[in-house]
Computed example of a mutant assay.
Amino acid sequence: MAVDRPRRQLTLDEVAELAGVSRSVASRVLNNAPHVSRAKREAVERAVREHGYVPNPRARALATRQTGAAALVISGENPSVFADPFFAQVIVGATGALEEADLNLMLCLAASDRGRKRVEQLLRSKGVDGVMLMALREDDPLAGMAQEAEIPVVCGGRPIGPKPRWFVDVDNVGGAREATEHLIAAGRTRVATICGRLDTEVGRARHQGYRDAMLAAGLEPLPPAEGDFTEPSGADAMASLLKNEPGIDGVFAANDNMGAGALRTLRQARRLVPADVAVIGFDDLAVAQITDPPLTTVHQPIRALGQEMARMLIALIDGGDPTPLILPTHLVTRSTT
């Protein structure tokens, strides 16, 4: 008596062969990715229907991925960066999106020669299925490595110089301009800025937004006091501003950590906020709600930044060609303005 044996499940390669398309095209159709002609899409869908191919997430991962991991690489060498509330939220957002696609997250720091060599080896050996890069600085070797990589790379923010093909960023110029316009609309005429590192795109973009708003209002932009996005650097920059520009009545700090530092210095200098000096930050981190007084700030969707970076990377790994994305910002008014 003959026994019916279970029908063997088709592989992705066999579906592609039956449809007369490449394996990558078949993968894009099954993942509902764009940039596939109607004829090829219909051929793949017909092969799936007629031969009973049933994809599942784990089988798809095995078919299109090699390691089951993606890396988040930050151009820095201090491990405490991962405890920074900004990067912590990015990690939460990225991890959630990667888990949905059965991908694990690897964290890497790469500012020292040793760190960069480790990342270079990771890219060349294809030790992960894709990479997300953040905090790139001017002439950062990581940007060149990313361009030469044979695996998908997504940038969080845009490096200075040639723009990457795939990136997720926020509207840094627009957010900084809105913050400065808010100070000007409140009657502040001597508005200064504590800018971030000017060897980073985010530092330059937020400084540009400040300058745009000042010039549009017919006001002279003041020389920036540069910080490194940390609270102590914001305190030091604020002290420098008070020394060089004692008449300032408004300050735009390029992130909340520096804004918190500025408030500390103003309190020590017995300058009332906002009566004497109004202050606005950027990011809308938890620290902005617990400063004294609570900090007006520009909200950026940090967790969504990590999430969208991961989603873009997943689309690339699965054969898609996603579009670069710029996320919106908006002002959150509290007690410092």
Rank of each mutant, 00 (worst) to 15 (best):
E17W: 14
A149R: 05
Q268P: 14
V251E: 07
V332I: 13
S233V: 02
E220Q: 12
G144I: 08
R58Q: 10
L62G: 05
A39K: 15
I290H: 15
P34M: 11
F252I: 15
A97N: 12
I314K: 01
A71C: 09
D212Y: 05
R114G: 13
L198R: 15
P55W: 06
R65V: 05
E148G: 07
G281Q: 09
N255H: 11
V153S: 07
A146G: 13
D102T: 04
R190T: 02
P223T: 05
Q121R: 10
P246G: 14
T323S: 08
G261V: 10
A33K: 15
P301H: 08
R58A: 12
D292I: 09
L272H: 13
V287L: 07
D292R: 07
V154D: 13
L142F: 14
A254H: 11
Q268F: 06
N56F: 04
D212F: 00
T11S: 15
A275M: 11
L107W: 09
S24P: 08
H182K: 11
A146P: 14
A225L: 09
V153W: 04
A69Q: 10
V287H: 04
T67R: 06
H35K: 10
R38Y: 12
V90G: 01
G161H: 00
L285I: 13
A304H: 05
F282C: 13
L263S: 07
P224Y: 07
A235N: 05
V170G: 00
G259C: 11
L107Y: 07
S75I: 02
R137E: 14
E45F: 14
T333W: 05
Y210S: 03
A286N: 11
V251D: 11
G175F: 05
L183D: 14
T189H: 09
A217G: 12
A101L: 08
R65C: 12
F87S: 00
E42W: 13
R270Y: 14
V92T: 10
D283Y: 06
W166P: 00
E231K: 03
D129S: 01
I280C: 01
L98P: 06
V81F: 10
D113F: 03
R264I: 06
S80R: 14
L331F: 13
